[in-house]
């Protein structure tokens, strides 16, 4: 475990905690894409299949449980909670996310570490995570109003990805044979998706103006 990876996991944890707090305290999910949250729930379900069969460390197991619990409870809140569900902006959150799922599944069948069910599901979760933010970014572009909790949510997610790239660079130079193209390519693609959001987020913060994404 290196400092970049720990910081990355913590900012990832922070992003879901910020989101859960927002939904739980103000009983609103305005500006949040349910599609993205559903994709994240699938990402964690597909990636953590080995939760009970492959023990890495207590930290690893606890974090997996936290990510699974938080992503599924966010989806539950947005779909089932009597108050929160009314604040869901379903007219604008119309990105057909199954368009993302199928290609990721096919790609995972083609490119994986080993052609076993668990490895294919792991690769699928890596590819799906890379594009999972897409419906959320589309929703932000459409509604253009970014309340600061939603902005913080996307910002922390982007920061977690940048820190993971630093983690891979560190591991590449400190661990022999640490080469994992699947995670690296997908991780870089994912981080690039945040690049323009980062730019507008930092510019709005610097000029102290409300965050506006160009149409």
């Amino acid at each position: 475990m290196n400092v970049f990876r720990l910081a990355g996991d913590m900012t990832h944890l922070l992003s879901v905690v910020v989101l859960l707090l927002k939904i739980h305290t103000i009983k609103s999910c305005a500006g949040i894409s349910l599609k993205t949250q559903e994709l994240y729930a699938v990402v964690f379900a597909a990636r953590y299949l080995d939760l009970f069969v492959h023990f890495v460390s207590l930290y690893n197991t606890v974090m997996k449980l936290v990510f699974l619990a938080s992503s599924f409870s966010i989806v539950w809140y947005m779909k089932r909670h009597k108050i929160v569900r009314r604040t869901y902006d379903k007219d604008h959150d119309t990105f057909r996310h199954y368009v993302l799922v199928l290609p990721c599944l096919l790609l995972a069948l083609l490119i994986n570490e080993k052609f076993t069910f668990r490895e294919v599901m792991w690769a699928f979760s890596i590819y799906l995570e890379a594009v999972a933010i897409f419906p959320q970014l589309v929703l932000l572009q459409r509604t253009r109003n970014i309340d600061n909790l939603t902005g913080q949510y996307v910002f922390f997610l982007g920061a977690y990805r940048v820190l993971y790239i630093l983690n891979w660079i560190y591991r590449y130079f400190t661990e022999p044979h640490f080469v994992h193209w699947i995670s690296w390519v997908a991780g870089i693609v994912q981080t690039l998706l945040y690049a323009d959001f980062f730019y507008y987020y930092i510019m709005s913060w610097k000029n102290n103006v409300k965050l506006e994404l160009p149409a």
Partner: peptide, 10 residues
């Protein structure tokens, strides 16, 4: 050494 890939990461 367990499955391939950086499966020690989250």
């Amino acid at each position: 050494n367990g499955p391939a890939g950086p499966h020690d990461e989250l």
